[in-house]
């Protein structure tokens, strides 16, 4: 394999740098076209990459928007610790909006039934945050390679006053010209890393030497076998269910969502290089570890229409 020759190809941009440039452009465009943006921060690797891109777009100034965390109360403790340390280092503003508060106020409820998922409860919580802080644009770290409905979503994705996405009525999006015009009460979700793949995200983390939560690296953890996957268990309500046997396995997480809906994979990958090698050899997609997408063929499309990210 030939490597880059800086003499013969002086003005060449590798694909990762081209994707970075695109994302920076999108972030600045939102800052310029909207009054009250916010960056959705979950503590997952994609949102951590987004923070790095925001640094590239706006440093040495502060970000022209706060970070927003929709706290389901089902987070991995490691992810919360990481979030707080990162915000501290950045010196940026963090807004935490809690699903539990919404449940207490009767504005949201957990899914009924034996599975204590708060996935759906995130939707009214997010919409409530938008209303409370009057956000008109929210950055999200979603990528088009994650899921079929997302493959067709625009980078500037419009939502009506109920936060709903209408897939058949999307604005054409041409060149790098983003039309952010909107009415009062309308808002958009913006996906600056739409064109990145899981591999791109990992390579960028490695290239930029970005710190990520320990959950992504292999570690010993109590898990149970559920629906053919290793599911992490902890204190209630995340304890083992009847008939489930707790085992200690060497696992890691490819994606960090709620404890109640993120499965672990058995893996010895302890370094970023190991993870990259594993992703390269992987035969299952990242969202395959998300039990929430498996409900039906159009699960993601339906949740997005309701206002999910």
């Amino acid at each position: 394999m030939t490597t880059a020759d800086p003499v013969s190809r002086p003005y060449r941009l590798t694909h990762l740098k081209a994707l970075e440039a695109e994302a920076i452009h999108i972030m600045r465009e939102v800052a310029a076209q909207f009054e009250r943006p916010a960056l959705m921060f979950s503590g997952g690797k994609d949102s951590i990459v987004m923070v790095r891109l925001a640094e590239k777009a706006f440093r040495p100034a502060k970000f022209p928007f706060p970070l927003l965390h929709i706290d389901t109360g089902h987070n991995f403790p490691e992810a919360l610790d990481f979030r707080d340390a990162l915000v501290e280092r950045l010196g940026e503003r963090l807004i935490v909006h809690k699903v539990q508060d919404m449940i207490d106020q009767g504005l949201a409820s957990e899914d009924p039934g034996p599975f204590p998922s708060r996935n759906r409860a995130q939707i009214p919580t997010l919409l409530n945050a938008i209303e409370t802080y009057r956000f008109d644009a929210l950055f999200g770290g979603a990528r088009r390679d994650e899921e079929k409905a997302r493959a067709k979503e625009r980078i500037f994705s419009f939502r009506d006053e109920f936060g709903q996405w209408d897939p058949k009525n999307q604005r054409p999006e041409l060149w790098n010209l983003y039309n952010g015009r909107h009415r009062m009460g309308e808002n958009i979700r913006v996906f600056p890393i739409s064109n990145w793949t899981e591999m791109d995200v990992w390579q960028y983390i490695m290239l930029e030497n970005i710190e990520i939560p320990s959950l992504y690296f292999s570690h010993k953890r109590p898990v149970v076998r559920r629906m053919g996957q290793w599911v992490p268990v902890g204190d209630a309500p995340f304890g083992p269910r009847e008939g489930e046997k707790v085992e200690h396995r060497t696992v890691r997480f490819r994606t960090v969502g709620d404890m109640s809906c993120t499965a672990a994979t058995e893996s010895p990958a302890a370094t970023l290089a190991d993870i990259v090698a594993e992703v390269a050899a992987a035969r299952a997609s990242e969202r395959g570890a998300r039990m929430d997408d498996k409900t039906n063929e159009a699960a993601m499309e339906d949740r997005k229409k309701e206002g999910y990210f």
Partner: peptide
Amino acid sequence: EFSTEAYLDMDL
């Protein structure tokens, strides 16, 4: 075969 070195040197 996958190589990080090659991956970081790809065009788009």
